[in-house]
Write a protein that binds this DNA or RNA. Structure first.
Lengths: 211, 211, 211, 211
DNA sequence: AATGAATGAGCGTTCATTCAT
DNA sequence: TATGAATGAACGCTCATTCAT
C-alpha cells in the first residue's frame, strides 16, 4: 500500500477532483451537457468556478472524464459471479439470464442518470464522443458473445449460432429496455416483463417448437 | 391536380421552405443541433439569415419540422407490401423478414444522416424531443408486435409469446443494427450478417432445437 | 371648390394616406413608437407593409406627420368661441376659464391617446422631436399670455402681471393635469377639482385676501 | 465607520458598479434609453460589455437603478432647511419660495441631464416606468401641499384653499419650468423670471387686488 | 492553490428598408 | 401602384476561459 504516502494536500486534491467529477456527472445527466455551465458545476459544490480549471482542462475534458468514469461503472456490471462458464445446460442458462436481468434492472433503478447520460446525452456531443459510445456498445456485444460461445461449445446452443452478431442483437434488446425504462421509470413490472421476453426470445425464438 | 393553381410566388415560397428544411436537416445531422447556427443554415443556401425567420418561427421550430419530416420518411418504411397478413407459415415469415431486412439496409445506406439525426442527435436536444423519439420507438415496437400477433393467431408462433414486449425486443435489435451501421457505414456485409442473425434469433432462439 | 377636380385615384391615395396616419397614431400612442413596427401599422390596416413606403419616407417621417396632425387637433382646441376679448371683468374671466376647463376635460376624455402621445411618448424620440414638443408648449404659453394681456389691458388683472411667464405657468398646470388624468383616467371628479384649483389659483392666488 | 472593513475587492466592485451606473445615466440621458446599447455603456467606461452583466441583471434593470438613483437626488432637493414650518406670514413665505426657487434653478443648472432623463426620457420606456414617474410627480405634489396646509393653518393663506390640488398645480408649473430650461439652458435670466412669476401667481393670483 | 472579476466571441432574434414582381 | 420576400445591421445576452490577487 502506497496510499498512506500521499500527503494530506494530495489526498485533498484527489478528493476535490472526485467531487467535481461527481457534480459534473449529476449536472450533465440531469440538465444535459449543453445546458450545463461550468459555473453550475462549481455552484453545486460551493467552489469558485475558476477552481474547476485547476483540475480539468476545459468543459469537454471533464465530460470525457465523466463518461470514462461512467463506463467503469457499467463495465463493473458485466463482471463477477455470473460468468459464462458457470452454466452447463439450457435451464441453468435461463436462470443465469434471469439473475443478470435482475441485476441490470437493479442497476437501472439505482443509476438512471448513468443510463441517461450514456444513451441519450453522450451520443450527440461530438464525433469522438459518439465513437466512444459506439465502442462501448461494441465491447458489450463482444462480451455477450462469449456467453453464447460457451453455450455452443457446451452443446446446449445450436452449432450454427452466429455468436458475435447475436451478442450484439442481445445488447440491442437490453439497450432498448434501458431506454424504455428511462421513458417510464416507475413501471418496474413492465421492465421485468420486457426482460423476461428477451430471455424467452433468446432461448426459444418465436417459432412454435413443433414447427 | 391542383398544383398548377399555385402562383409562381407560392411555388417559390414552398420550394424555399423545402430548401431551408433540407439545409437544416443536413446541418443538424452533420454537425449537430447545438453546433449549428441559424447563419450556418442560411450560408449553406446562400440566403440572408433573416430570411430563415420568414419561414420558421425559431431554431427549435425548424428542428421540430426536420424531425417530423424525418419521421415521415421512417414511417413510410414500415408501410406497403410487407404487411403482417401476407405470410402463413414460418418459412414465409422468414422470407418476409429477409425482405424487410433488406429494405432497412437499403434505407440505411440511402439515409445515413436520417438515422444519425434520430438515433444520436435528437435524443438530447431537450426533454420534449427526447420524449418524441421515445414515442417513435414505442410506436415502432407496437407496430412490430402486430406481425407477431398475426403469427400467433395463424398458429406458426408459440401461443405463450409476449407479442408486445417481443416487438420492442426486435426494435431494440434493429436500432442497434442502425447504430452499428453508423459506426461502420462501409461494412455492408457485416450489416447483412447482423440482420440475418436477428432473423435467426427471432425465429429459433439460440437453444439447440432438440434440447 | 377644387376638390372635385381630383381624380378618383388621387382621392384614394389621399384617403389611404389618412388611413395610414390614423393607424400609425393609434399604434404609436397605444404601444409606443419604439415598440411599434411598420408591419404593425400595415397589419392594422390590412395593407402590405411595403405600401407604407410609397406614402411615407420612413418610420421617423410618419411620426413627424402623426405629431403634426395631432398638434392640429390640439391647436383647434385653443381657437373658437372662448376668445380673450370675450370677457370684460374678473367674473366673466372665471366663467370663461370654467368653460375652457370643461372643454379641456372633454378633450382629454375623448382623446387620451393624443395626450399620451404628445406628453409621454413624443418627448423621447430624438432631439428634434423633443424640440418640436417644446415649441408646442412655448406656443401654447404665448397663446395663453394673450388672455392675460387682455385682462391687464381691460383693467381686471393687476398691471405688473408678467403675462408671458404667467402664461407658461398656466400651461404647466394644465399639462400636469393632463398627466394626472392619464395616470387616473377614470377619476373625472378629481380632474374637475384639479381644474377648479387652477382657476382659483390663477385668479386669487393663495394669500388671504385681507392680507 | 465600518467602511474600512470592506476589502479592496469589495471597494473595487462597488466603485465599478457606481461607474457603470454613472455611465448608463449619461448615455441614457444624452442619447436616450432606446438609442443606447449596452456596449455603448461599456465602451464609455472602457470595459468589456460582458462585465456589465456581472453587475446588473439586464438593460431594464440598470435603468431602474439609474432612475432610482436619480430620484434620490431629486428627493434630497426637497428636504432640509426650507421646511414648511419655517415661515409665519406671507412675506416669509415669499422669501422661502424665492430660496427654494433659487435652489431649484441651481439644481437645474448642475443636473440638466437628470431633468432630461426624468421628464423627457423616462416617460416612455414602458408602462411601469411611466407609472413610476407619475408616482414621483404625485408625491411631489403631496409634499408641496404640506407647505400650503401650513399656510392655511397659520392663517396667512385663504381658508378655502384646496391644498392638495394646488400642490399639484405648483408642481406642474415647476415641471414646466424645468422643461423650458432644458429647451433653453443658457437663458438663466428667463428661468429666474419664470420662477418669479410662479411665486407671484401663487401668492396673489392675477386678479387686481382691489377687485 | 483557490478565487471570481473580466472578457469578448458568438448566437438567436428583430425589424426598417429595398426592390423585383 | 401595391406587395411582401429578402436582407443584414444591430442588439441583448450567455458563458467558456483567462488571469490578477
Amino acid at each position: 500500500m502506497n496510499e498512506p504516502t500521499l500527503t494530506r494536500a494530495e489526498r485533498q486534491r484527489i478528493q476535490l477532483q472526485a467531487d467535481i467529477l461527481e457534480a459534473a456527472f449529476l449536472e450533465f445527466s440531469e440538465r444535459g451537457y449543453h445546458q450545463t455551465a461550468i459555473s453550475d458545476i462549481a455552484k453545486r459544490l460551493g467552489i469558485g468556478h475558476g477552481t474547476f480549471y485547476r483540475h480539468f482542462e476545459n468543459k469537454r475534458d471533464i465530460l470525457q472524464h465523466v463518461i470514462s468514469d461512467t463506463m467503469q461503472k457499467i463495465m463493473s456490471l458485466l463482471t463477477g459471479e455470473n460468468a459464462p462458464q458457470a452454466v452447463n445446460n439450457i435451464e441453468e442458462y435461463r436462470e443465469q439470464c434471469q439473475r443478470i436481468s435482475e441485476r441490470f434492472r437493479l442497476f437501472a433503478q439505482e443509476n438512471p442518470l448513468t443510463l441517461k447520460l450514456l444513451l441519450l446525452e453522450a451520443t450527440s456531443i461530438d464525433a469522438e464522443m459518439t465513437r466512444f459510445i459506439q465502442n462501448l456498445m461494441q465491447m458489450a456485444g463482444i462480451f455477450t458473445a462469449n456467453y453464447l460461445k460457451h453455450g455452443v461449445d457446451s452443446g446446449f446452443f445450436r452449432e450454427n449460432l452466429d455468436c458475435e452478431n447475436t451478442g450484439h442483437n442481445i445488447i440491442g434488446m437490453i439497450t432498448n429496455g434501458a431506454l424504455r425504462f428511462l421513458a417510464n421509470p416507475e413501471d418496474l413490472n413492465g421492465l421485468k416483463n420486457y426482460g423476461d421476453s428477451i430471455i424467452e426470445l433468446i432461448i426459444g425464438g418465436v417459432a412454435k417448437p413443433s414447427a
